[in-house]
Structures are given as structure tokens and as C-alpha cells.
Nucleic acid binder design. Structure first.
Lengths: 233, 233
DNA sequence: AAGCCTGATTGACACAGGTCAAGGCACTTC
DNA sequence: GAAGTGCCTTGACCTGTGTCAATCAGGCTT
């Protein structure tokens, strides 16, 4: 991990993070004070940012790269909860958690640059700014809703339906009943996100292809019939 | 559903809800104004408070009874996400959701009295009170964390481990390695919360009993060895 | 070009947990 | 007290998905 201790005001990142909706509404002075406490860090692919259970003093903003948030069972089995990409914050919910430890493990799955934002600085800032508070609230509520939907997918949908949902969520181009999907992640990580094994993912794609519903070309998938792909009509 | 249009200031409920931590910090005047918009409703067992997808204008506080929050698959399969009991609020996250519809269905599973609190009134109140904002934030963050743990349970734990966790969470009395658990819900609802069928729940309890780990006496379970029950050592 | 990774695919097999059907037990209702 | 109803249990059977192992393809390294 490479650490650039402070974020300079003239750094190119300064404006990037400034524009993020959790910061966008802040007064210049307030943001500057906050920025003085934000540090920039670079991680290589495979490096761990933090482990589940580590004390959590900061949250993060991803400038470039991808960070995988995962849970690991005592037997060493891993489940990817979410993958955070460009221009997104993560672990911001622990700003307000009673238990001040990370509930997940974070690993860079490509070379990654993040900004580390201290919780207490941010919290102090919030206590003077109801608008910022409200923005964070709606952010956290959106996350909560996503998690409820995830639970729904895991329980009342089977593996095939979950894959269909995933594909539909990642359509890059659509034309009536046809669509193109670009897989932005290695298949084994997609499998883990869907809580299936890579083998099952491979077999599911195979059987969808055999049914003529789609064609797989490496990381590109051509869906020939969204209607037939869709889990329920 | 029986509706008592307004909450009277001398109603016995007034103090109950006043003490809830989402309201406790409010000034008397502010709370009174809010209370003027809170209505009290009584539901019989089996009645639906709202369906998933219904427009969400209010959130709720449960005074007595139990409310089941569930997801229903297109095939009619139901998954209980959570059961809300006495003195707890629910659906408070939709106060800040972009999409203003309930993400779950709520059904009274016993005779229930709830207070209905309008979102916009509460939101308006929040915009003047950073402390209240912070409290709600930590509340929602706690929920979020619970959901992450639930996802963990569903994915990297099997049915037996999930049952063990549930039992351990519901211990009413413990003595060294032994414990007593009281099941506060009908078994079929517990099964759904654990995302298993009632048949599987029954069989799991049976096999734990056969292994001598516990004894089942109707709604009371005597755990003879917490160590052997516990999913991981 | 040869050798190595890492990731993806395929096949054979196993098993956890679901489905379907039957029956038991405790309550209520008439 | 007969019949009905809701909840739980048990058995027989089935199936989706995981496990294990072998193979393959593509991209790096030397």
C-alpha cells in the first residue's frame, strides 16, 4: 500500500471527491477542513484494505479500481457482498454504527486508489449540517433497501433467477427484446456475488445458451430474448 | 382495522411512544406537534397493514402485538424478513427512500395496536433537529448491519447453523453450558425467518434432540450443551 | 517457444433441503 | 361429541446445487 499522506487542494482528486453527493452540498470552508484530514492511498490488486472485525475509524471513497467487500465463513468460504467501483463511497454506514468494527472484509481486486475519510471528522461535520445528515440518511436507506432486495433474491429466487436478475441489471445496450450485457467482473466473483459456485454459473450460462436465450462470447453476452430470460413475466 | 383518529395527549400511549429513542430527545413542543399527526390503529390477527409496493406515506410504532414483515415471490412463496414486537418502530427507513413504496408486506400475526407516523411530518421535524437526525442515522445503520449479518447467515451458513444462531439469540435463561430457549413465534414463522420449510425445521430439531444436544417441550427448548449447539467453535 | 499461472469449463457423483402426502394433536364451533 | 381448523410431525421421494477432479484456454514470464 502506498500512502500519500494528505490530499492537496490542487490535487486532481480534490474536485472528484468534492462532487460526490455526500460532499457536494458542503460549504467550501467546511469541505476544506474535512479535506485536510482525508488521505489518499494506493493498493495493488490482491491487497486487503481491512478485515472484518478490524476497528473502523474511517470510511472510503474509491477513485480508481475496484474493491470487493466480502464475508468469510469460519471454514474459509468467501461470499462477495458487493463490489465498489469508480467514484463510490463504501463503509460509510459504520460512521454511525454502535459497534465500531468493519462488518466485512475489503480487498482490492484491481489496482486501486482510495481516499480515507475519518469517521469522527465527518460526524463532527454532520452535526453542524442537517442537509448533509439528510443526504447520508437517504444514502444509507438506499443501501438498506438494496440489502432487503438481496435477501429476497437469495431466499425466494433460485440460482437461475438470480443470474437473470444480474444480467438484466448489467445490460449495456438494449433493443426491444434483445440486449447486450458486458460482464465487468471475473466470472468467479460474479458467482460469489450470486452465492453460487463458478461451476454452477458456467453450467447455467451453458444451459441458457442451449435454450437459445443467449449467446456467450467471453465477457460479452448477447441476450436474444429478454422475455424468456426474465424470471417472472 | 379500527382507527382512533388522533392520539390524545392524555392517552396512555402518549408516554410510551414519547420514550422511544427516536422521539425521546425531542423538545416537548416539537413532540406535541408531531403527536398531533400520529394516529392509532388496531388490527386483528391476519390483517394486512400494507402490501409490498403500496405507496408509503407513514411509518409505524408497535404498541402491542406482532407484525410480520415479509416478501412474497411471484409464485406465492412467502419469506418472513422480520417480526416486529412491542415498542419497536418499523418501516422508518422509507422516510428517506427515494422510491416511496414499501419494500415488504406487513401483516399482523396477533391482535396489534400501532401508531401511524406521517413521513413528511417526521422529516420536517428532522430538518430542524440534527440530534434526531443522528439518532435515526444510527438506527438505520444498525438495521443495515443486521441485514448484512442476515445475508451472511443465508449464504455461508447452512440450515442447521442458522437454527443454532436463532436459538442462541433467543435464550431466556442460561447456566454455564446449559440454557433455556422460549420460542416466541409459531414454528412455521420461525422456519420462514430462517428460510427453511416447516418440515426441515421439525427434522432439524428432531435430529438435535436425537444427538442429545437439546430437548423440545412444545414452545420450550432445553439446550444441554451450548458448546455442541454452536455452529463453530 | 516452453513453461506457468489463473480462470473457466465439463463430467461424475453426493447430499442438503424441498415437495408431496398422510396423519396426529390441541382448540374451537356448532 | 362430532366435525372442522390450524399447526406440527413424519415418511418417501426428488432435485438443484455443491464437491472433487480433470482438462483446457489465454496471458505472462523467462
Amino acid at each position: 500500500m502506498l500512502d500519500f499522506p494528505r490530499m492537496e487542494k490542487d490535487a486532481p482528486q480534490y474536485e472528484t471527491i468534492r462532487r460526490h453527493y455526500l460532499f457536494a452540498g458542503l460549504d467550501d470552508g467546511v469541505f476544506e477542513a474535512l479535506a485536510a484530514n482525508i488521505s489518499v492511498e494506493a493498493y495493488d490488486k490482491g491487497e486487503i484494505l481491512f478485515h472484518r472485525g478490524d476497528p473502523a475509524h474511517d470510511f472510503f471513497f474509491t477513485e480508481t479500481g475496484q474493491v470487493e467487500l466480502s464475508l468469510i465463513s469460519p471454514e474459509g468460504q468467501k461470499k462477495v457482498v458487493e463490489v465498489i467501483g469508480h467514484d463510490r463511497t463504501f463503509a460509510e454506514a459504520i460512521v454511525f454504527m454502535r459497534e465500531r468494527v468493519f462488518p466485512v472484509t475489503a480487498e482490492a481486486i484491481s489496482d486501486t486508489v482510495v481516499y480515507r475519510i475519518p469517521n469522527d471528522t465527518y460526524r463532527k461535520m454532520l452535526s453542524d449540517d442537517t442537509d448533509a445528515c439528510m443526504r447520508l440518511l437517504s444514502d444509507v436507506c438506499r443501501h438498506l433497501h438494496q440489502r432487503v432486495r438481496e435477501i429476497e433474491r437469495l431466499t425466494i429466487q433460485n440460482a437461475r433467477s438470480r443470474l437473470s436478475s444480474y444480467l438484466i441489471d448489467h445490460v449495456v445496450d438494449t433493443d426491444d427484446d434483445e440486449a447486450t450485457v458486458r460482464l465487468d467482473l471475473p466470472k468467479h466473483i460474479i458467482a460469489s456475488r450470486l452465492s453460487i459456485t463458478p461451476e454452477t454459473l458456467s453450467r447455467l450460462l451453458r444451459s441458457l445458451a442451449d435454450e437459445g436465450i443467449l449467446t456467450v462470447d467471453d465477457r460479452l453476452i448477447f441476450v436474444h430474448s429478454l422475455a424468456r430470460l426474465r424470471p417472472y413475466d
